[in-house]
Write a protein that binds this DNA or RNA. Sequence first.
DNA 1: TCCACTAGTCAAAGTTAGTGACTATCAAGA
DNA 2: TCTTGATAGTCACTAACTTTGACTAGTGGA
Lengths: 164, 164
Amino acid sequence: MERGAVGRRSQRKQDDPDLGILAARLLFSVQKELFETLAEQGHPDLRPRHGAVLGYLDAEGTRATELSRLSGVHKQVIGNLIDELEELGYVERRPDPQDRRAKLIVPTDRGLEETVKSDAIMAAIEQRHAEALGERTYARFKRAFRNVTAQQLAHLTGEEQAGT
Amino acid sequence: MERGAVGRRSQRKQDDPDLGILAARLLFSVQKELFETLAEQGHPDLRPRHGAVLGYLDAEGTRATELSRLSGVHKQVIGNLIDELEELGYVERRPDPQDRRAKLIVPTDRGLEETVKSDAIMAAIEQRHAEALGERTYARFKRAFRNVTAQQLAHLTGEEQAGT
DNA sequence: TCCACTAGTCAAAGTTAGTGACTATCAAGA
DNA sequence: TCTTGATAGTCACTAACTTTGACTAGTGGA
């Protein structure tokens, strides 16, 4: 670590990448593995951005605005993604009996199958890491990751409110 | 955790987000904070994508292909980013004395100032998390994060080679 | 009842990433 | 020394993705 601190900046960043770099690399590589594996398992048309819908979809249906909130993606984008996924046969729009403005986005059988598979792929990825690191170390890492992420988001939200 | 396992899928994902979700949230929120802070500190035109160049740039200059390799971004995109950053006054292209095909991307004074600031902002973000989690816990988290990310990338690369 | 807010959609514009191809240059092997 | 496959960077274009503005129908609290 001290050796890295005295080298060129790019070397220092390779030896001790910051949070942003680590998060970017992890996200990119996890997404690549997930969508390549899904393609092998019969879902070749899905893209990472579809995850904003499929990643949070409940079997009983989920409102588009809820998907937008959960994923952090704009509602118009969610609408576009739902259009695509409808075309691809993963979801259907159904009226929401509790609010006549709203639609429930309901998975088709194909959509349900996909969610089961993607959850299984993610679980296998995490299990692989847990085995490599040790279950307990991995569990601690995940807990810290959740904490860091939650605090990062809270800090961002807190800042914006302070500026109001 | 067991309570979460029996709820709706979206609730389970909120209670125990997977690696992909955590990485996406952390990346997005760290980038938001970094670029908003940079804007406050006199660099309002920079975007997260510029980080593929500025995030790895050495004071003595760096080749475009090296930046592409370090950042994982296509060389043509790197070329476009360099064009933009040249226009914005952050970098210059200089011939590389060691290879007449190549160019060195060299930071201007403004570019150097930005790299110093962004490194400081990232360090402050990480210090804040270390204080919240405890220095030792944070250090362990970072080490695990580096390991998980390295192994994820190695697995992806290993897969591709196995398929060759 | 009224009105501010919300859900979802349409339309358009803006931003960013990926692919194909090319010329000059390099370096290793014959 | 010469040849050739590989590389660095750029040009040109296409594809993919995100953001902004606006609107109508519906909701719920005052």
